[in-house]
Amino acid sequence: MLPVLIIFVCTPLIELYFLIQVGDVIGALPTIALSLFTAALGGYLVRMQGIAVLMRVRDLLDRNQMPALELLDGAVLLLCGFALLLPGFVTDAVGFLLLVPPLRHALIRRYFQVVPAGHAVHPGHDEPRVIEGDYRRED
């Protein structure tokens, strides 16, 4: 709980510091314009990647596979879009870094145990274990 509190307190202060520093170098209006530009560009990029993730989710669902990585990918993209919409250069940098798919997937795999679609995890087995069978419904 303490790390979350520190993030919520320190992030706005760090953002304010950098906004003041950049504003001092290039001026107030260019700083505001740059902040609006990064928000617009980030929103566009998140939208494009979000549509791609949505198409992958639909494709996997059509093949009756669980889109676990894609759902987490979409959740990280949502956080990424939120970070890019916040005014400030530090959150924009974090948001743009999370737009890089290999970094995003590495982050997801680091904090979540994700199995690619179509595979199963079985201790001691390298290959997925498939059990075939038939069933009949009797009412």
Rank of each mutant, 00 (worst) to 15 (best):
P3E: 09
P3Y: 13
V4L: 15
V4K: 15
V4H: 12
V4A: 12
I6Y: 15
F8E: 02
F8V: 06
F8Q: 05
V9E: 08
C10P: 06
T11P: 02
I14P: 00
L16S: 15
L16N: 15
L16K: 15
Y17K: 08
F18V: 14
F18Q: 04
F18R: 07
L19R: 08
L19P: 02
I20Q: 04
V22M: 06
G23A: 01
G23M: 08
L29C: 12
L29F: 15
L29N: 06
I32Q: 05
A33P: 04
L34E: 03
S35M: 12
L36I: 15
A39Q: 14
A40L: 10
L41G: 02
G43P: 13
L45N: 09
V46S: 09
V46N: 04
R47F: 07
R47L: 09
R47Y: 13
M48W: 11
Q49G: 00
Q49S: 03
G50D: 09
I51V: 15
I51W: 12
A52S: 15
R56Y: 13
V57D: 03
V57M: 00
R58E: 03
L60R: 15
L61D: 08
D62P: 10
R63L: 12
R63P: 11
R63N: 14
N64C: 00
M66H: 12
M66N: 14
M66R: 14
P67W: 12
A68P: 05
A68M: 12
A68W: 09
L69A: 14
L69G: 11
L71I: 02
L71K: 10
L72H: 12
D73H: 10
D73E: 03
V76F: 07
V76L: 07
L77N: 09
L78D: 07
L78T: 06
L79N: 08
L79V: 00
C80H: 04
C80T: 10
F82W: 08
F82G: 15
A83Y: 05
A83W: 04
L84M: 04
L85W: 13
L85K: 12
L86M: 10
G88E: 09
G88V: 09
F89C: 00
V90S: 00
A93P: 00
V94Q: 04
G95P: 00
G95R: 04
F96W: 06
F96C: 00
L97F: 03
L98K: 02
L98G: 00
V100Q: 11
P101S: 05
P101E: 13
P101D: 11
P102N: 07
P102F: 06
L103K: 01
L103A: 04
L103T: 08
A106Q: 03
I108T: 14
R109P: 01
R109F: 09
R109Q: 05
R109E: 02
R109S: 08
R110F: 04
R110N: 05
F112V: 02
F112T: 07
Q113D: 10
P116Q: 05
P116H: 02
H119I: 01
A120Q: 11
A120L: 05
V121I: 13
V121W: 09
P123W: 06
P123N: 06
P123R: 13
G124W: 06
G124D: 01
D126Q: 04
E127F: 02
E127P: 05
P128A: 08
R129N: 05
R129P: 00
I131G: 06
Y135D: 04
Y135H: 14
R136W: 11
R137I: 15
R137Q: 09
R137K: 10
D139M: 14
